[in-house]
Design a protein around this nucleic acid. Sequence first.
DNA 1: CGGCATATTGAAGTTATTCAACTCCTGTGG
DNA 2: CCACAGGAGTTGAATAACTTCAATATGCCG
Lengths: 242, 242
Amino acid sequence: MNEPAPRKPLSRLDESLLTGLPPFSRLERRQIRTILDQGTVRRYDAGIAVFDEGAPAQRFFMLLDGHIRVVRVTPTGEQVTALHIPSGELFGIAPALGRDTYPATAITASESLALSWPVRLWQEFVTRYDGFATETYKTVGKRVGEMNTRIVEMATQHVEQRIANAVLRLANQNGRQTDEGIEIDFPITRQDLSELTGTTLHTVSRMLSAWEKDGIVKSRRKRIILCDPHRLVVISEAHPTR
Amino acid sequence: MNEPAPRKPLSRLDESLLTGLPPFSRLERRQIRTILDQGTVRRYDAGIAVFDEGAPAQRFFMLLDGHIRVVRVTPTGEQVTALHIPSGELFGIAPALGRDTYPATAITASESLALSWPVRLWQEFVTRYDGFATETYKTVGKRVGEMNTRIVEMATQHVEQRIANAVLRLANQNGRQTDEGIEIDFPITRQDLSELTGTTLHTVSRMLSAWEKDGIVKSRRKRIILCDPHRLVVISEAHPTR
DNA sequence: CGGCATATTGAAGTTATTCAACTCCTGTGG
DNA sequence: CCACAGGAGTTGAATAACTTCAATATGCCG
């Protein structure tokens, strides 16, 4: 290594970027170097579509920093959020699902940084790099599990419980401890939460107001702080009728 | 071939059983023979759990005949159907998702016949048999798509539309043309439909009654016949508020 | 400081659930 | 072959959970 920097326009990425991440954790420094050199890094503003549902899957991605919402849009234009992706995970991995188009739209929830490779390298990564296939299928499995959970929630729980669950999950995945409580560390609107729980922004707003009155959360515009997670858990489990 | 039948207690399976099925379609007769000989066939009565959520994934399955409901049970005991699996597909493929327990329970919706193999053969199948990996990941991809669709439906559509969609999907996957219309060719109760759509058997019953009054469907106990699929499609698309 | 996205909240309206009572099949065993 | 038990389905009435409508308030960024 240490060739006098080639065509790459961006400053060369450090190998440590990928070293700790599951799909690459079993690889040697030299292999990671190769992988990095084959990919492209790009920064995205908040609220930008990284790729669109139905578009030909030309690249697959690793989210280095930021947050992604995986969204589907209905024929009538409403959005439904299927998943949230935290940094350090692969996304847009259509090839792992035997697809040649993206099954959903990926939108940045905050300013983000992602590394991507052309799909033709997928097969190579899978065969050449030990653990890559295993780990990516674990990711797929985890997401299938999450989707399953959401289906069950939507089918059996009341709106209040679904919102509680969504908030708890976001805080778990992306929480940051502050002196007031655990803050969800990316901007999230009432609208976003409603798209995540299959309800309206009005209902979400009412819930958050009620919770705030009870001292369970605090919320400013686009920010939610969890003061009393335990009581939220209680709410999320409470009396699931049916 | 034509060896004088070995240890197998069951009559030997014919290679043609698997020949046409995607995960095995690119294989030679001899390879299919080997695969068959490594597996076990079993018949299941209707309403039997083939495996349970959370149990160690010891085997993976190919459904040769019948129908499977993939179900999750909530802490309070309600069931939610996540997927329906028609014959000719793999199921219980936890290893493909990097899991060592089953993520959901598989229940036979009708009398069924399934072939199964111990999970330790999974890796072997993937590496040794051309197209097996590709095709199974396509299956996974298809199921992820279905789950996605269900999430969107549950989040945005009214109960009537969800039931209409569920009925249409079942009829498409498992319909049989009769002189009265398309019949869903396995027994399905109001309860089943409610678990599939996240509603109550009461509401489903009312819907089917109303539709029957309008000549859209006919239904006997555990049987549904679609007389006018087109009008059901119209219902399923109608005015999705929100 | 203006303008726009975000958020709040009451009141009215709907949809679907819950409760409850009852009917209709279908298979089983006397 | 008939009775009957239990699963499956139906349907009205009351109620609850959310949504919709509408009006107003509150940051926030340029």
